[in-house]
């Protein structure tokens, strides 16, 4: 028996919005410590890694490890039927080929349930090595989304250059070129508005804008985003989900041909 309950459907809606741009389907691996999802996009350029810890749910029970392959488009149709303040419960029997989403209104007067067929997905699990990154940037998630959106007008690629002084985002193309520099915050009044840089060595890396823009669909989940970078290795973009886990995106860099 698997059962996981959240007191507000908003969190699950936001999590789904954060991953469905990159993935059409994905397997939710459930065990007694929580729910994990790891999947690459079709082109194998980016990877989504989602963790929802058991202790972050209002109720969580998972008697046997369970892998639930879901079509995220179908899941989105179902989640659209939930009000933000509904309680949402996911339920499945052991070895089941369906999962049930149950929504309960706050006054308990409306209860809906939606049963969705599960899929058998071929899963390629990637082992991600522990890495000490040369630069770690923490910045407002809204600011990062804005920068990705603005600069993707000027080129397909975004260059991120991180030094001790700050982080510079650049794009160039037919129109011309664009640069946005963010200095490290000197006095932190509000932590969620700060730009903080931990640098061992300066880094300059180039990434495809379209993936970065997909990652920013996670912005509603949290105030701050963390970018971890080292030369010539994938970028990690991490959004923490309050009290329950995180969604991390890995993006392979573009390199000189």
């Amino acid at each position: 028996m698997f059962e996981a309950r959240l007191s507000s459907a908003t969190t699950l809606k936001k999590v789904l919005d954060a991953i469905k741009d990159l993935l059409n389907e994905a397997t939710f691996d459930c065990n007694d410590s929580g729910i994990q999802l790891q999947a690459m996009d079709n082109s194998h350029v980016s990877l989504v890694s989602l963790t929802l810890r058991a202790d972050g749910f209002d109720k969580y029970r998972c008697d046997r490890n369970l892998s639930m392959g879901m079509n995220l488009g179908s899941m989105a149709k179902i989640m659209k039927c939930a009000n933000n303040d509904d309680t949402v419960t996911m339920k499945a029997q052991d070895n089941a080929d369906t999962v049930v989403f149950m929504f309960e209104s706050q006054n308990q007067e409306k209860v809906s349930d939606y049963e969705m067929k599960l899929m058998n997905l071929d899963q390629e699990h990637l082992g991600i090595p522990e890495t000490d990154y040369a630069c770690i940037v923490r910045m407002p998630a809204m600011e990062f989304a804005r920068i990705c959106r603005d600069l993707s007008q000027f080129g397909e690629s975004l260059v991120i250059c991180c030094t001790k002084e700050g982080v510079k985002f650049s794009a160039s193309g037919d129109v011309g070129s664009a640069n946005i520099k963010l200095a490290q915050t000197t006095s932190v009044d509000k932590e969620e508005e700060a730009v903080i840089i931990e640098m061992q060595e300066p880094v300059t890396l180039t990434f495809a804008c379209r993936y970065l823009n997909s990652f920013t669909k996670a912005t509603p989940l949290t105030n701050q985003v963390q970018l971890s970078m080292s030369m010539d290795v994938p970028l990690v973009v991490e959004y923490r989900i309050q009290d329950i886990g995180h969604v991390r995106y890995y993006l392979a860099p573009k390199i000189e041909d």
Partner: peptide
């Protein structure tokens, strides 16, 4: 010219 790399060249399959 910048070439897009694949994640598969950085991470190993488990």
């Amino acid at each position: 010219y910048m070439k897009q790399t694949s994640l598969k060249s950085f991470f190993s399959f488990t």
